[in-house]
Write a protein that binds this DNA or RNA. Structure first.
Length: 488
RNA sequence: GGCGCUAUCGUCUAGUGGCCUAGGACGUCGCCCUCUCAAGGCGAAAACACGGGUUCGACUCCCGUUAGCGCUACCA
């Protein structure tokens, strides 16, 4: 086999949004291209007029770009094999259907959809494999001409050879064999003149010089049809690689109903593209050692089709969450700052009110405690507004009858401190506890509750420093007024 | 129903005939650290679907069974 340059394609149909399974297919194609110094082509398969969705193509491209999967050729990116939108290539498919017709590898079929459906029903009743009965293959030249002249609508069907084995090699699955006996005479050109997937993808892959067809496993069963088409045209075949499916927790094919399937759903929920990419890369592929955290750039170096698994993989959100935490945690301060400000603005808070220094200190304090940017306001709302309520469970656990008195004392001591830092607060609290003859905990826990309204978070003294002396004292004051000991 | 693909802890997976007392990760549980919560450290529970072969020896190879999934459109 000659070594032709690697060219792969991602060929989604624009149905409105990008499915995470589609994103993984795109990713594997992209990675394979990068790894082999090849080209990554985006092709839009929009030959189903009934499914046309406004803006879907733009949306698809936007999402791919968001994920960082830049394509070398495709709509808007140029390339020598364009156009990259199938609805703009119909003449090409028509010509190729003509070639097949001439070679007697295809024939016109004038059967009505009604008749076809009746036929199918009958076959199902007799428990036969639903298959076109070739009525129109037996039409004479005259009959065909007559039908054509009278303007009868028709489709072009592929003429599947009667008794041959069709086998091909799949990079992931090895040799796969089908018998032509169970291959239907597929429609190649629909009555509206548009090609079906089978014709269009073979014609385009050939003309776009695609070297490797990397797609989902749902295409495995129709690959023999494509093989037959390559043969009929006398074209060299690309290499095939059928990827395992992404599954719901119940192991059915990943679908809506059981959770989010659109990439933009995850985007909206605050998942980082780094985490999503890392996660789906690991769903069906692994590096062979024990590393788990990968950047796109690292994946580009490590990826290989040989290490792709055969079995479907459950899309398990728990691990995705963990990866999001890992990636968010290792992001530079500046990047987190920008995301945090954006999030604050979206939540109706004015980021300017806080100042970058302040927000940076919050980021440092919360770094190990947030998996998502939204966790900043959900897990530590007290950095952005004084508590307006106090967790009843924590009151019950930590707020003693004497707490108000102790805190009041503590507030007085804090007031005496001049621009206190962590150590000063800590020393002051220890001295106060000593003078009160109570353990530090008797002050620490109520104080945490007072300034934050909750029972968890960064080290208390870190919180105090971030909030500042005045705010700390103010919050102690309101807490004393508002927290009543839980009824014993 | 037919055809095809697949089958290791709950989940993602390592494993290519002896290195396996089956390794890692997420999750779960326990302990340590500790002002809380995280993070971190240590540890635990947790799997080769089943049955036949082949072989001196099978998680690894072959066959069958079972199960799951996919395809079975003038959708992709």
């Amino acid at each position: 086999m000659t070594e032709s340059p690697v060219r792969v394609r991602f060929a989604p149909s624009p149905t409105g949004y990008l499915h995470v399974g589609g994103l993984r297919t795109a990713l594997y194609n992209y990675l394979f291209a990068k790894k082999s110094s090849g080209r990554f082509v985006l092709r839009i398969e929009d030959t189903d007029r009934g499914r046309y969705v406004e803006g879907a193509v733009q949306n698809l491209i936007k999402t791919l770009k968001w994920a960082g999967l830049d394509f070398d050729e495709g709509p808007g990116a140029g390339g020598e094999s364009g156009p990259y939108i199938q609805s703009e290539r119909t003449e090409l498919y028509r010509q190729h259907a003509e070639i097949l017709l001439e070679k007697k590898a295809a024939y016109r079929c004038f059967c009505t959809p009604d008749r076809l459906e009746q036929m199918r029903r009958e076959q199902e009743k007799q428990k036969l494999t639903p298959k076109y009965d070739r009525t129109c293959l037996r039409l004479s030249e005259d009959e065909i001409r007559e039908n054509l002249n009278s303007g009868k609508p028709f489709v072009v069907r592929m003429k599947v050879p009667d008794d041959v084995n069709v086998s091909f090699n799949d990079i992931i699955r090895g040799d796969v064999e089908f018998h032509s006996r169970q291959i239907d005479d597929q429609v190649l050109i629909k009555s509206d003149g548009y090609p079906t997937y089978h014709l269009a993808n073979v014609v385009d892959d050939h003309h776009m010089r695609i070297s490797h067809v990397i797609r989902g496993e749902e295409w495995l069963s129709s690959t023999p049809k494509h093989v037959l088409l390559y043969r009929a045209f006398g074209w060299e075949m690309p290499q095939f690689a059928h990827l395992p499916l992404l599954l719901n927790p119940d192991r059915s094919k990943l679908s809506k109903r059981q959770g989010d399937v659109a990439v933009e759903d995850y985007q909206q929920k605050g998942y980082l593209k780094e985490a999503l990419i890392n996660f789906i890369a690991l769903l069906g592929w692994n590096p062979g050692d024990e590393r788990e955290i990968f950047s796109l750039a690292e994946l580009e170096k490590e990826f290989s089709l040989e290490r792709v698994n055969k079995a479907g993989a459950v899309f398990n959100v728990e691990k995705l969450n963990w990866l999001n935490f890992q990636h968010l945690r290792s992001k530079p301060d500046g990047e987190v700052l920008a995301m945090l400000k954006e999030h604050l603005a979206k939540s109706g808070m004015d980021p300017a009110k806080f100042g970058d220094d302040y927000l940076l200190r919050v980021i440092t304090a919360m770094r190990e405690r947030v998996s998502f940017i939204k966790d900043y306001t959900e897990k530590s709302p007290y950095f952005f507004r004084a508590p307006n309520e106090y967790d009843p469970a924590i009151i019950k656990k930590r707020w003693k009858p004497q707490s108000a008195e102790y805190l009041s004392k503590l507030g007085e001591q804090f007031a005496k401190l001049a621009s206190p830092q962590k150590q000063e607060y800590e020393d002051s609290l220890h001295r106060t506890a000593e003078s009160l003859k109570v353990g530090n905990g008797e002050l620490i826990h109520p104080l945490r509750l007072a300034v934050s309204g909750m029972g968890e978070g960064p080290g208390l003294f870190d919180i105090l420093v971030i909030l500042g002396k005045e705010e700390t004292i103010r919050r102690i004051g309101s807490a004393i007024d508002r927290i009543k000991p839980a009824a014993a």
